[in-house]
């Protein structure tokens, strides 16, 4: 591309962004835009598939057949989300195999929330309610993301996440109105998942590195702190309905602003978990790598078989 036509293409890119229209795969886009999207979509896809592990951990032990079916369907939905998102990333000129390789070798990340263990059945409720709930708060604005394929994938994903959130709430509701043992289990799960859920919105705005450019590009619509506030405002009344106590002594409703003020999570913990120092980092990655390596001979066989079929057809 000549300098002039490059400049013209970038003008049209900026015009599309300014008009709040969608950029499509064939459109010209700045390199940084493409790279940012690839990083973000891949990280999102990785989170979906790593997230299958903490919940998959409870399928075999789900305490009723109805709950088992719902949980299986949920974990399977997350695999589906991974598929749509890898497909969205592939429209930017990368392929799934390379992205998986980046995940397996630690060069790309996934959401740190999945580095916490699921210790009781109530954790399945807490994950649905809080983690899928936080994911919705993060992802609803992405349905208007400037990159078309990502925005469209998000519309589909968000619909399913809201089912998951409701199912999680329902699990906790049943527990919190159940036996004393079940109530204790529900409270314990909220106590453990509250702070990591707040961390899902990323570092505070003051120390967030990628935000400003992403905002200008229409990839990000709201700051981390805004989204965190929105999550707290949405979730605290739901905790009241559940009869569970949010483990934050600083939580107060401010009549004037209509928002809750709350204690910020310990972000040094977030930075540590991102660096690899969380309770399940090693296990999650090792499990993923093992599934991939154990499956290598299967994928090779499928490729070899397809090649033979092509040859026979020729």
């Amino acid at each position: 591309m000549s300098h002039l036509s490059y400049a013209r293409a970038m003008d049209s890119f900026q015009a599309t962004i300014d008009a709040d229209s969608r950029i499509e795969p064939r459109d010209a886009m700045p390199d940084g835009y493409r790279k940012t999207l690839i990083r973000q979509i891949a990280q999102h896809a990785h989170s979906e598939i790593i997230g299958m592990q903490p919940e998959g951990n409870w399928i075999s032990r789900a305490p009723s057949l109805r709950r088992k079916a719902i949980l299986m369907a949920k974990v399977q939905d997350e695999a589906g989300h991974g598929l749509y998102l890898y497909a969205a990333a592939e429209t930017l000129g990368v392929d799934r195999a390379d992205l998986l390789d980046m995940l397996h070798t630690g060069r790309q990340k996934y959401s740190s929330i999945f580095n916490y263990p699921t210790l009781t059945w109530a954790d399945i409720g807490a994950i649905g309610w809080l983690v899928d709930g936080a994911a919705i708060v993060n992802q609803v604005p992405l349905c208007r993301c400037s990159y078309g394929p990502y925005a469209r994938a998000m519309v589909r994903v968000c619909k399913e996440e809201s089912f998951h959130q409701r199912q999680g709430f329902e699990i906790l509701h049943t527990l919190s109105t159940g036996t004393p043992g079940q109530q204790a289990m529900a409270q314990d799960a909220l106590d453990r998942w509250w702070w990591p859920s707040l961390m899902m919105f990323g570092p505070p705005d003051a120390s967030s590195t990628h935000s400003e450019q992403s905002m200008a590009w229409g990839i990000k619509r709201h700051s981390n702190d805004e989204l965190r506030q929105r999550f707290v405002d949405m979730t605290v009344p739901q905790a009241d309905v559940l009869g569970l106590r949010v483990p934050d002594d600083g939580l107060v409703y401010d009549e004037v602003t209509g928002h809750y003020s709350f204690t910020q999570p310990d972000f040094t913990e977030l930075y540590e978990v991102v660096k690899g120092n969380g309770p399940c980092n090693e296990k999650r990655l090792a499990t993923r790598v093992k599934a991939h390596e154990d499956g290598a001979w299967v994928r090779e066989a499928a490729a070899a078989y397809a090649a033979k079929q092509m040859e026979r057809a020729a």
Binding site: A69, A73, G295, V298
Partner: peptide, 29 residues
């Protein structure tokens, strides 16, 4: 079958085996 979910050779297979397991569980119920 459910033990395969998150352990399958490729993502498409996590979905397919999950479907099959769900069918079986539905029949069982």
């Amino acid at each position: 079958m459910a033990e395969w979910i998150a352990a399958a050779p490729q993502l498409e297979e996590d979905v397919a085996l999950g479907n099959i397991g769900l069918d079986q569980l539905g029949q069982a119920r």
